[in-house]
Design a protein around this nucleic acid. Structure first.
Lengths: 213, 213
DNA sequence: TAGATTGTTAATCGATTAACAATC
DNA sequence: TAGATTGTTAATCGATTAACAATC
């Protein structure tokens, strides 16, 4: 049993950890050795008590008057959010968004490595998008079972989402990062994490209508 | 004063409204006239009481035993999240992600129309990405002031984000939809809505480590 | 030492969930 | 009518914020 399997981290805390990591990585780069919760809070414009409580979930311990050792804190955060481990992932649906994700260097830096992409468009077969080969969707199951892939990033059109999901699950995929605006039906053993860009747009438009606070 | 300027909608509610709209649009397409909160809740796998309370924020009123008139509900939701109005927007940073956003048909369907994109790469000038012309970043201020653009979508690299933001604000931009992982400093009158993909990845990885619930 | 910062417990706030009368 | 569904008030739950002793 790993550290993260028995502890329960609040989702809002998890969502904030990457921004903390970004801040302290920059400080580390500048040669700083320690950082306080106040430092991070000021940099991000949030409350320092919240930061302190979030950091208490990590293995890192702080010293009064000094703060947290940056190397220790980086390790503690990366350990929780799994960015100290490498995973192989496939991407399904190499359209505009899918191609953009393939080319985003942030994923491999954080341990998520795309080893192949699949698409239904025959004209794309054999081409490479940011060093990742586009394979025929027909080879999906074969690739997953042979390479024991557990993670799939789903960027197919809405109408194909559930059907592709069924194939992914059947082939043994354990987690789907879903970028299509569809609720995917999967067995309870499969994790689905959905990103909905339109929620963000809705919040943005409401805030614009209200005017700045 | 419009409807949305004096009412205060909870952010979680706003984030759910687009998914409700998607569900009832599909029902409308099938020819259905009424929908109940339970129908929507079942389709999305969430609690029906939550849906009912969210819908109470709209102008639509339901009839016991019948539900809400779909046309009325669509209008009510669109009105809150501003998808019944058209806005002109510019995109700054026509890289992978920026180009993907330019090509996404979902935005113009929801009233957000990209009228130009700007980039620092001279080789892109004059080219079109999904019917949107890429212009030199030097023309940014001129374009904003002449066309009275209020909305900018920011997809530039992190190191350029704040500098571009300052230029946008100076030129009169009222809202920035920010896709760079940077906290932007803006005057209080300017709305900044930030999307952080890495938060989603973090939550996904933690849930994977825990195994499915 | 003095005082800033941690770690933790308590209070507040807001969202979700439960309950139920009103109603079509 | 009977009963499903709305609209709304109350209870619960969880996250944020406040408070404060411990400590380096």
């Amino acid at each position: 049993m790993t550290d993260s399997s028995d502890k329960k981290y609040p989702v809002p805390t998890i969502r904030r950890l990457p921004s903390y990591l970004r801040v302290i990585k920059a400080l580390d780069f500048e040669g700083r050795e320690f950082v306080s919760a106040t430092d991070i809070a000021n940099e991000l414009g949030i409350d320092s008590i919240k930061v302190r409580k979030d950091l208490a979930y990590t293995e890192a311990t702080g010293k009064p008057r000094v703060g947290y050792r940056i190397t220790e804190l980086m390790h503690g955060i990366r350990s929780i959010i799994g960015w100290d481990r490498n995973s192989e992932a496939i991407l399904v649906g190499a359209g505009c968004l899918g191609s953009a994700l393939l080319g985003f260097p942030g994923f491999s830096k954080r341990g998520l490595n795309f080893v192949a992409a699949f698409d239904a468009d025959r004209e794309k077969y054999g081409t490479y998008v940011h060093e990742c080969e586009i394979k025929p969707i027909e080879e999906l199951e074969k690739f997953i079972t042979e390479r024991l892939i557990e993670i799939a990033v789903l960027t197919v059109p809405s109408f194909a989402a559930q059907q592709v999901t069924d194939r992914l699950v059947n082939a043994g995929i354990k987690g789907i990062w879903n970028f299509s605006p569809v609720r995917l039906k999967v067995p309870p053993s499969v994790v689905v994490q959905s990103e909905n860009l339109m929620s963000g747009l809705a919040v943005f438009m409401v805030r614009m209508a209200r005017g700045a606070e």
